[in-house]
Each structure stands twice: as structure tokens, then as C-alpha cells.
Design a protein around this nucleic acid. Sequence first.
RNA 1: GCGGGUGUGGUGGAAUUGGUAGACACGCCAGACUUAGGAUCUGGUGGCGUAAGCUGUGGAAGUUCGAGUCUUCUCACCCGCACCA
Length: 876
Amino acid sequence: MSESDNQQTKYNPQLLETKWQGFWDKEQIFRATPSPDKEKYYVLVMFPYPSGRIHMGHVRNYAIGDVVARYQRLQNKNVLNPIGWDAFGMPAENAAIQKKSHPAKWTYDNIDAMRSELKTMGLSYDWKREFATCDPDYAHWEQDLFLKLYDKNLVYRKKALVNWDPVDNTVLANEQVIDGKGWRSGAAVVRKELSQWFFKITDYADELLTGLEKLEGWPETVKTMQTNWIGKSHGVEFEFKITGHKEAFAKEPTAEDTTMGVYTTRPDTIMGVTFCSVAAEHPLAKLTAQHNSEAQAFIQSCQSTGTSEEALEKLEKKGFDTGLKAIHPFTGEKIPVFIANFVLMSYGTGAVMAVPAHDQRDFEFAKTYNIPIKVVIQNDGEALDSQTMTEAYTGPGKLINSAEFNDLDNENAKKIIAEAFDKKGIGKATINYRLRDWGISRQRYWGNPIPMINCEKCGVVPVPVEQLPVTLPDDVELTGAQNPLVIHPTWKLCNCPKCGGAAHRETDTMDTFMESSWYFLRYCSPDEQNAPLNTKEVNHWMPVDQYVGGIEHAVLHLLYARFFHKALRDIGEVDCDEPFINLLTQGMVRKDTINCPTHGWLYPNEADEIDGKFKCVKCGEVATVGRNEKMSKSKNNVIDPNDLIAGYGADTARLFMLFAAPPDQDLEWNESGVDGAWRFLNRLWRLLVDIQERYNGAKPATTTPKNSALKELRGKVHETIERVTRDMERKQYNTGISAVMEMINAGGKLLAAGEVTKDQEAGGVLMELAHVAVVLLNPYTPHITEELWQMLGHEEHLGLAKWPKVDPEALVKDEITVVVQINGKLRSRLTVPANISKEDLEKAAMGDEKIVANLANVTVRKVIVIPGRLVNIVAN
RNA sequence: GCGGGUGUGGUGGAAUUGGUAGACACGCCAGACUUAGGAUCUGGUGGCGUAAGCUGUGGAAGUUCGAGUCUUCUCACCCGCACCA
């Protein structure tokens, strides 16, 4: 063989990956158009925020999505596999402030950079459908949808308590508040009441909950998280009459001051109520504050309390006696009303009936303020003493000290007492949700403007649809101190569409979760110019058959998107009830962190490994290995995907990602694992080149030869088809790959043995193996398989091939190995004909010399024969 | 506190769902070969033992002819939510 031939037959990923990416691009191989002949399949990966560079999390996410897409294509489905950019958001503004440029320029530059990075991965996207959510077009139709939902009464404005950062002058989302401080400014966040726009997600609370039951293709964990987040509870809502205004404030009450609504899930404990508590923001608390400066001070101290976990855990139960009295609806007893720092205004009515004997918080509170504790539930034969008990009893039991309700089982009592409330006309059974309406107002520049106008005369007026889109002004100076839309000299000035008078625009922009709530719909008809969606095309492609993304979006994005989809269904934009049929949440990519005492967190290439210990390359000191954590810039434990792809090629990068762990599990980064993937692809390459050279022109076998080695190998090939297909369906890609590895190893072994190489039948079986290997591996490693397919003599590209079918005849075995156990312990193995009868198998086992020896001094009690598997002899 | 999950060799991970524990890969050991390559090939590799064998899936008990798999208890770690009345 000449020098140049040798060069050609060497696996060169850089060369052939460029070649095939160019081919796919030029021939528009992955362009998706609706087709009546083929079943549609919509695969979707969560679109990236254009931060500037792709990271390993992206590589994993998109590699998984691409396996699904390519596998479904080989199954002859019409696959839609789109990609785009989640392009609004705060990082663009922060970068713009730092670099004194414009968020749009920063964002589009990043998109260009990341697009070319993604293209080196060889992903089978329909790039013609690509868009960025900050494109005027997308923003336009989002505003249009906002107004349509406003017309449907699903959008409203109200005053709400928000996390306010007093330094940055903006509202912060809950997740942007870290330990009670603004994530950027570090200033203590205060709670402030502001006018905010809301989506009525609570209208859909019940459907969002019940809909989860039908989502069989979703991980249980995600469904549980959403269930908890929605937080449905059954209880009773009723009113206390309030008195004592004269005694407390020397003032007559107004009508609304004389009642107080409460919500309880424990109506069975009604007779144990010994006080009430209200939130600091409750009207009765405000009323008290008007007359009492101490109450005012107490309320203020409640509002400055941090919202972090830690702060809450340490927080003492504190209260302030309003002096007002609530009248117990059943006993008529007058009980005190406290303002309490642990009562939430945002849940239920902001006021609670307190039962210290049966609620731990109330118990602690009662102990602090010397309030009586009244036991009303206890187990039979177990007496609870309010004087000596050290914690609330929250378990089940029978009612005591409860007048007419005594001796009722407490679960039963919940119903009976709820009915009693209803009969008295003072309360009713209610369902409550933890879920709150979705506040979408953000005091930020780089977001989609809320298309509303405030007119002094007419109030809130929607921007007329023909005036859409409301676009962001370009001439702004970003300082981070204030929303540039507010301080812009002219942008917010406009005329009221109703009265024509001077008015001003809403200066808040939408939460960026808005964009991700309908991008999967827009992908179906990205070029539609006259409406947000082309419903015919949307209904062709929707719902998404397989969604792939990070578990971190389990609640927020996936709940918002489900809600928004249902809202759009109700205004006729789409037919299906749920947007995502199957959900795969991939695990994180993790790596050890390395810390140098003087230089802090080190990048992997800043530490030399010597005998398992690390030394800092800058100072030579011994660096310590920290926790194995999610790859993150802050810990420097990152590997740049570009380096990996440039060095080994995209196929190796993809193969490693998919082989190292099942998709839903965390994946530990390990350099030698990459080498393993690389070596396998080289082995594959060499084997197939070898087969092609030896058997050039041979047709892949369609029947099984008699030769036992070839028969066995062909059995292996078809067993591999079976295994890989099953693993594709259950999305366990690591085991699917290992099955192909086994097949390649078996093929290599047979060739190396040399016995059958000249055999014509051998050519058929090995050629079949080569073809099967290429097709089975194509979803994982598309470039090398395309090249090998061509080398095997195909003129049509691999995308037009079909997923191989199992030949049942090939799986039939002449002989099988059966295990013989004595008392469950492995004692011998037998090679027997595959079709052996139960009786003959038992006979063979009992006659085996190892078994005979083992049974010498014992009596056989029972023999269990499982055909095809084992014989277990029970003896003693 | 509530909810969910995971515990298997030196490492990542398999195990057709109750039937040979450790597939495949990394690493390691021994050897071969060479165009010294990111090599490649062959053999070995859970632990103890020279061996026959014993033992082994976080721990304890149970069901079963048979348990990594089912049941109960328990320990450890991870994730989510968290004063939700």
C-alpha cells in the first residue's frame, strides 16, 4: 500500500466533519416541511441564552436531542428539529453597562459566535426556522398575544409586594434575591408595593394539576415538583366577628373592620382555637398601626426580615397584641388577635385561626406569649396534657373538648364541621392554592415592552394592534441605576388611543419567561407575517413529541409554558392541551474543582497531576481537590467544548457525552473517557475499512450461514439491532453504544482469528455487520458514519437509509448455556441444545459430574427447572 | 420539617424487571509488535485464598427453591420546596 493510500484510510475527523456539515447545509437535508405521507415527529431542545460561548451543558443537551432527531428520521418520520435564541435578559444589559455598548449588539454578536460553535457539533437542525426572541418580529407577535389574552381577561394590573433593590432601583425576581440581598448590588432588599402586570395562571391551577396525570412521558420528579408548587389544599374559609375597637383604640369601628376572614385546612380543630394571628400587611394590622406607634414599629421590623431559608429558620415567632378580640363562631368566646411575623399575606386571607395544641407554629407562639393551649384531638387511651406537652400534636385521633363534635374521628370531623359552618351561614368548604398569579413586570430595558398606555382620563388603554410592535428606543444610556425607558426624554410620551390626549407608555418590560412560553409554537411557522401563529402548521407539528432540557427548569419555565399554551388554546391559537408529551431532563456535567492556597480556583490546565496529587503551575504549591461540582465559570472547573471538538472531533465529543452515563444522570467529566470514545471510533474505522477492502462488492447477508462462527456472529448482529432499538426507545444511550461496541469487538475477533476470511459467506455476514454498525451509530456519531456509508459504496447519503430490522431467524440459537445451582449456589454450567425438554435438562443436570460429586452426602428434596435459564437443586 | 431520588469493583456505569452480579468503557498488571502513535494487539483484573473454595450490590431483618431487584426497619449522601395555616 502506498503512502497516500495509508493517509486516506486513516480516520481524520476534522476533514470529514467539515465535509459532511457542508453537505447537510448545502443540500438542506434537515429542512422540515409538513408532509401528508410521513408521520410527524417534533423534537425540541431548550433554546440557549446567547451568553457568548457554548458550554458542556449545551453540548450534552443538544447531543441528546440530536440522537432523538436522527433516530426518528431513520424510522421514516418527518422530523422537525428547530433551534433559536432566548435573547432578552439581564446579562445583556450588564455587559452593555460594563462595555459601554448596546445590548442588541452584544446579543447578536454572541448569537453569531454561538451559531458557528453549534454548527461544529453537526446537529441536524432546520436552521431556516431559527430566530432570536429579541427580533422585532417575535417581539411584535408576543405583544399581540399579550393583548389577545388581555381581551380574554387573563391579564390584569394590581398593586403587589415585590422585592425591591433600593440601589439598582428595580424589582428583583425571587431567584435574584440571595440571602435577602440584591444579587448585583448587594443591597438589602426591601418589600415594596408596586403596580405590576399579572397573568392569571391561577385560573388554570386545577387544569395544570390534573393535566400532570396524563403526562406519562414526564419524569415523576418534575411532576411532583409542579404538584407541590401548585400546592392544592382543601379547607374551610370563614369569618370571625371582631370587637374591642373602643377598648383598643377608643374609636368606633367601620364596617370592614368588624370581620376577619380566615382559611384553615384543619376545621376539625376549631374548638381548640385560642387566638388569631394576622400578617403584618393585613388590614387589621394597618388599622392597629394607625393608633399605635409600637405596632407600627413591629410591622416595619417584619417587613425588613430577610426571605432566605436561613433567616426564616432562625426567626423567632414574634407577635404584637392588637388589643382587638375575635369572637369564636361556635363558643362565642373572645380571643386575642395578634400581628404575627410568620403569617403570610399572600396565602389564604392573610389571617389564621391559631390552634396551639395542634400546630407547631401556634404552639411556639402560645408558649412565648402565655396564651392558653387547648387539646381537642388525642388518640384513644393516650391523654395529652396542655401543661406538659412539649410540641403540638398533629397526628390523627378522636375529638375531645369539642362539645357536640366530641368522639368524632378527626378526618370525619373535618367534613362534619365544614358542614356546620355552612349551616350556620358563616363559612364554606374552599380549595386553596399555593400558586400565585404570575407577575411579569420588570423594570428593565432589555425585554419586550408591555404594550399598554396610561392615560390620566381613560386609565389603562391597550396599544391598538395596528400600532404594534412597540419597539425599544436605541438611543439609551445604560447605567444600571434606573430603567432607561423611564428616563428617556421622549419614548414614553404618546397619545391616548381613546381620547387622543397626552398619555405615556408602560415603561416596564416583560419577564423573559414570556418568550420561552411560546417559542416552540412559533418554530412551527416562523415566517408567518400576519399573525403570531399559522394555526394550520402549528396544529400539524404540535404537540412536541420529545422535549429535552435541564432539570433546573422543572417548575418555572415548564409550568409557565404549560399555562401559556393552555391560554393560547383557549383563544384558538392551538388545539392540543399539553405542549410537551415526553420530557427528558438531562443531568449536569460535573468536574472536580482544584484549589490553590494562593491562586484560588484553578483551571484544569493550571494544575499538574503527579501521582494523584495536584500542583499549581503558577507557584508549584500543592493544590487541594475540592468537591466534584457542576462545571461553572466561578469555580474554573470548565472544559471548553471548542477545544474538545477541535482536538478530537464532534463525533468523539458526542459519543463520550452519551456513553459516559444515562442522559438523566449527572455526568462526571473524565479525560480518559474521551480517549476511550476516540479509540472506539478508530477501531470502528479500521474494522470497516478492513471489511471493505477484503469483501469489496459483497452483498450484506440476508440469511444465516451454517458455519457456526458466522452463525454466531450474525446472531450477535441481530441481537445488537434489538438492543440498540430498545435502548433508543427507552433513551438509555450508554447501553445502546456498549451493545454496538460488543458487536464491533466480535467482528474484529472473527477477522483476527483468520479462519473464515476467505469464505464467501463470511463476506456477507461481515458486510451486514458493517452496514448495521453504521446505521445504528448514525444518531450518535453522524459524520464518521456518513463517511463510512459512502466508503461502503452507497451513493445516497445515510440520511435516506432505514433503521435495520431484526431477523428472528438469526436470533435462533442451537446451543445455550444453562446454570446448575444447588440450594441457590452456582455449581456447574451445562451446554445443551436450545430446544431441550424440561425433563432432559433435569436429567442432564443430575448427571453432571460436578453435581453428582456435590450431591454425594445429601438428599435431593426438590428440583426447579427453568427452561433456557437454570436448574436449581434443593437438597440437604 | 415536607416531598422526591441515589447507594453495586480502584473509576464511570451494566444486569432482558425475581434466575450466571460486575456487560461496555476507563484505570491497572503481564506480554507481543512497531512506521514511537492520542498507538495497536493478546491475556489478566471485585475481595480473601497457592488451590478446591469462601465471600460479595450502604447496614439489619423478612418473603422465596432463588433477592442488586420485592417487604419492613435503618444509615449516608444528593435534589426540590419550605413559617402555605
